[in-house]
Design a protein around this nucleic acid. Structure first.
Lengths: 243, 243
DNA sequence: TAAATAGTGTCTGTAAGACACTATTGA
DNA sequence: TCAATAGTGTCTTACAGACACTATTTA
């Protein structure tokens, strides 16, 4: 792939952010309304091109997080999701995008940034059921991000990242139910969470409830990996229906 | 991220391939000896720049598979591993590399290709224990690829991709033992593999053994996902020792 | 006290790991 | 017959899911 004549082609590199949070007990993703062409006026993931040729990829992701979503880029869990580089995915030319997944606790409404005429939290199932159309291949990226988050809830302590600094076990259960889209048995969930060493540790006194017995408060524990895992209820059928 | 003056920077895009196979009951990765600068003479993963600006990423990966490793790019399992784009990882400039993971059954010796003065299978533990130095950040990439393969053995039917068209259960067990680097109980393994519906299906007659009772032959079944999974033996201790 | 939510105990089925045992080949 | 490898049965422990039950609060 090298000789005296041939020069390797260059591409434009972008980062896109799938920022997930819980609002109203439903999983939401942050979308912006695009203020510039292409797809002007359409909803899209926050993101953008590398700021300069020497910018690190995670740094670019955190910069966009702040610029376009006004979210604290330094503190959020950020994870590489994958590369999306199909030719033709962006009408501006060969744009290869690195997608990052971020998990945020409930936050104040985001404000519109530089290139976004508006920023808003959108329930993911509206996008994944194609009720909302989003720009580029962002529907695919969102789907991949949601699936990654769902899978990570099983074997990592990620769920606590959706909560505030302290939370009750019932709140943690709501995270699992919202992300997985299932109902869980509170009593079995209670035992599982307590049995996973290092997942949660007691924190301070009770929380004052609207009604009923007050619940113990917990903080995220030191463990990142869940042993034993908290597994999703098995979906029957359609086992061989995957490529 | 756009105004009338500023132009987004361009980068060079490369693909790198982590090609794993089993030789002599040990996990090997294909390395080439670099024939050009930088890192000339050093071992590195096969890979290279995009051939032209409109080339698809998986297509580029398969092309490099054929060009540098003389392996049949069309037939191999290929999976995106991640993006490696730290500034400074390549002295030629800002090079962002998309790594792909390929799993190959035992194959004839690869032949050197265009930019590779030599191509050879190297036991992964020699690289991961830093006994062999490899170019760029390829040690990291190999580590990520091996970990991905290890994890996928647990819950997918990937292991069959290491074998030929037909295989015995004992051969399949050798795959697991080599990739995971553990010893498994043959009798429990037998039951687990048989119990995972769709993993393997009977194929033809017995295989003539060197000695001992002949074993049944199997082919890869239609299932891609293992239910229940075949889990790695748990490694005790060092639970909270992860970031 | 009732209503509501928090938290515990217990049972059943399934699966993992340990390992004794039987089966089928060649020498 | 023995050595070697293939394959089965069975026991123990652990965990998932179902669900009856107790505990602690406010109204």
């Amino acid at each position: 792939m090298s000789d005296d004549e041939w020069r390797p082609p260059t591409v434009l590199l972008a980062v896109d952010l799938v920022i997930l949070t819980l609002r109203d007990n439903r999983l939401h993703v942050l979308l912006i309304e695009r203020g510039v062409e292409p797809y002007r006026g359409m909803l899209a993931l926050p993101g953008g091109f590398l700021g300069h040729a020497a910018e690190d990829l995670p740094a670019a992701a955190r910069r966009e997080l702040m610029e376009e979503a006004a979210l604290p880029g330094e503190t959020l869990h950020l994870e590489q999701l994958g590369v999306y580089g199909t030719p033709g995915r962006d009408p501006r030319g060969r744009v290869v995008s690195v997608a990052y997944l971020a998990i945020a606790p409930r936050l104040p409404e985001p404000t519109a940034g530089t290139d976004a005429s508006d920023a808003l939290w959108t329930p993911v199932e509206r996008i994944l059921t194609a009720r909302f159309e989003v720009a580029f291949d962002h529907c695919q990226i969102i789907g991949d991000g949601v699936e990654r988050a769902r899978a990570k809830l099983e074997y990592t302590a990620l769920a606590a990242a959706f909560c505030g600094p302290t939370f009750t076990i019932a709140e943690l259960q709501l995270v699992y139910e919202a992300v997985w889209g299932v109902q869980l048995d509170a009593r079995n969930f209670y035992r599982k969470v307590q049995g996973a060493s290092g997942f949660i540790v007691p924190a301070g006194p009770m929380r004052k409830p609207v009604n009923g017995r007050p619940a113990r408060l917990f903080r995220a524990g030191p463990g990142r990996r869940l042993h034993p895992p908290i597994t999703r209820p098995v979906v029957v059928a359609a086992e061989a229906a995957e490529a």
